[in-house]
Nucleic acid binder design. Sequence first.
DNA 1: CGTTATTTGTTCGTATGTATC
DNA 2: TGATACATACGAACAAATAAC
Lengths: 250, 250
Amino acid sequence: MTAPVFTLSDEAETRQRPLWLQVEDAIVRAISAGRLKPGEQLPGEHQLAEELGIHRHTVRRAIESLGGRGLLEVRRGRGTFVAARPIAYRVGGHSRFTGNIEAAGLVPSARVLRSGIVKATKDVADNLDLKPGDKVTALELLRMGDGIPILIARHYMPADRFPDFAERFEKIQSITKTFASYDVIGYRRRATRLAARQPTPQEAVDLRQPRSAPVLVWGSVNADPQGRLINYDSSVFAAARVSIVIEEED
Amino acid sequence: MTAPVFTLSDEAETRQRPLWLQVEDAIVRAISAGRLKPGEQLPGEHQLAEELGIHRHTVRRAIESLGGRGLLEVRRGRGTFVAARPIAYRVGGHSRFTGNIEAAGLVPSARVLRSGIVKATKDVADNLDLKPGDKVTALELLRMGDGIPILIARHYMPADRFPDFAERFEKIQSITKTFASYDVIGYRRRATRLAARQPTPQEAVDLRQPRSAPVLVWGSVNADPQGRLINYDSSVFAAARVSIVIEEED
DNA sequence: CGTTATTTGTTCGTATGTATC
DNA sequence: TGATACATACGAACAAATAAC
């Protein structure tokens, strides 16, 4: 008889820790001991619950938690799998998505989620030094590697200076080159803000990730060589799929 | 009769979206419309469920999700409250916790969670350019503002060069000054890595935050003026309580 | 191309434990 | 101590996505 893949620790403390946490531990042990390898599928929730002699909801809770920690990937209708290692995403003077994704050996692609001229929210207005309600050009992109969503990039530009940015981007397919088409070359980052939170329901859908897995939010403001603010960029990363590497400039 | 604080949108699509998501929306609307202000307490789960004519579990799910998004703060036995705004945490050449917390108007404090000489894990060894199993001095601190946990800082130093770092720190109470006691002055950051995930159960306990709220992980390697690696620092932030600001050096 | 089995997602039901005031 | 409020766990049924036939 072979050793079981999952075993609850039947220590004296068994009733001390919540059952679902013990299940979580059991799965983590199975992964770190190599009994489960990246990409491998777990038994179904029903089966796992029966094997351990507990309720399916309790198993679900453990799986949901580990999905959020990035160790498992849950796909509805298909099953639950041990997650692959996240790719390294480099951000430097100005980050280029395509280069980053290609460096990881993936094929980059993008899809426009929303675009057009909108009124600036307080957040956007503050960052671009405008008044709330001022017109800004908004361009929201879903950027993917090998067809898997990596991040949602939200670009906001003052509408008076870049009125048709979205249309130009659709043709040019590069943020840097679209700015160049306005004779803006060599812009640089001015301020950077970082946060982590759970995704909004829409973000979870767009990124095709569970709501329990967090997103990493990277907000930066860019200025042209004359120091004028040209762009507020807020990127929402699927945190389980990337780790961000900040490059030091020497 | 006054308008109710929470209302489900009774659009035609009512049965399209999951009920608990509609509840989430209702709460978000109540907050953004100002019917609920930061610090204010929500009705109990039972009451809310009854008001909306749905099951308590469904309300729970919505509240749990918003806890993870940082909009609500759930305190067992007390109630659920609208969360306060996060503080800005600045990271520059070398970040100083105390200055950051004082700048936010809070009183800084720290508690040693663990310390001692341990064998390097693969992660630590890779970052310090050692072999897994080599001895490192580990110092794990819980850093707080006004008594509220902000981050867990994990410092790892090569044990051969800094054998009694933890003991010295306990007296000196400052990382920078402890390094100075080894004649290391003016170290600088070499590499930085960022990630976001759900906390481990232990981290959730230490940070006194719900397991559903994410943490932001900031890993950096520091070198002395001679270029020798002296320190690998991995900080786990309670993401709902801070937003990280990266300072550009001109 | 539809049918069916499998698998995860949602919802209500019910009971009990535990922290706070 | 009791009341209140959140936490855990088992139970049952159906919905929705996916894959295989």
